[in-house]
Each structure stands twice: as C-alpha cells, then as structure tokens.
Design a protein around this nucleic acid. Sequence first.
DNA 1: GACCAGATTGTCT
DNA 2: GACAATCTGGTCA
Length: 192
Amino acid sequence: MTNISRDFFLKPTPAVARALLGCELTCHSTTGSSGGIIVETEAYLGGDDPAAHSYRGETPRTKAMFGEPGHIYVYFIYGMHTCLNVVTGPVGTGHAVLIRALEPTVGVELMKQRRGRTEVGELCSGPAKLAQALGVTLSDNGSDLLANSRFELSEKSVGTEAVVTTTRIGIKKGANLPLRFYIKGSPFVSKA
DNA sequence: GACCAGATTGTCT
DNA sequence: GACAATCTGGTCA
C-alpha cells in the first residue's frame, strides 16, 4: 500500500528526490502488476531551472507539472520515448522529480515481455526504459499517485552513506547542477 | 569497450 | 522549422 502522505512531496525538491531512493513503486494493470525499488532520480526546479520543461511557464504539455504534489507527470520525448516524473512542491511551482531507474522486484516476467528483453538489468535502467517496463503511457499523465488504485508507493529509507549526488544526465541546460541522486553500487542505475 | 549516428513525433519559436 | 530530461544498434579499436 501507499504509505506516503502528501506532505512528503512538499519538502524541497532535491530532498524529495533523495528521499524517494529506496522506495518501492508498483504499477497495476489489467495484465498484471510490475514495479521495483527506486534507485535513481533527478530533481527539476521549475522556473529556477533552465533544464526543466516548466522553466518557461505552464503550457498544455507541462500542465501536470504545475498541479498537485504527488501527482504524475508523463512526457513524450525524442519521438518514441516516455518518461515518468512525480510532481513536488506547492501547486504552481512546476517542480518535479524524474524517476530514472528502478531495481525490478515485482512482475519481472511482465516487464521482460513489455521490454522485449530478458536481462533484468536492462528492464528499468533508464527513464524511458522503466516507463515502458511499467506500462506507463501518456494517459497516466496527471494521475494522482496517492489516491489511485493503479499506483502504489511504499516509503523505505536509505542510509545517507549509500546515496551519491552527481550532476544530471542527457540535458543541455543547467547540466552542471548537482541534482541527480542514486544508490551507491546499484547495478540497476542508468549509469555508474 | 568506447564512441557515433539514426529513429521519430509532439511542442514551442 | 528545429529541438528535445533517450535508447539501440552498429562500427572501430
């Protein structure tokens, strides 16, 4: 069950990104359940962050990013990929945390099927990969993570010594900010 | 093992 | 019309 309160997402966005590490995210669908432990995240700081989609203000595309904290923001990129974010901060700030990688624990077979791959390490080791593995699509954009039978999030803490902070990946602007967090030594992160 | 280019489409300038 | 918070497969060393 989801055991996280709305307040969890009202902390400073980098703190939320950090706190999400170790939490277990599960997604239910008609074909079964799938999910895993969050091992890598990135923080995006809305209007203060040139790399964030919300930097230039709200548009139809980024509407969900400006919504209620704890909701989901799904975006489509590079013509063929979708990525999963969790909205943070007060309504209207445009903050979000990008889920970059999971350690598969639930529905591994289902995820292998969706991804067309058999190596567990290739199922969720990247933002577009995990979205595909969990069956998350644009129709999930704007869903409430806390009040939705489709998603579950269970809080689990991780020792500070197990968390590594680095710069973000795959972006052009603001790439030097230390807003990426991952679990040290995990073989499931997108990049060591 | 490391690096490079292609795929493919919604969104904003 | 150009770009984008990516992934995959190919080439070369």
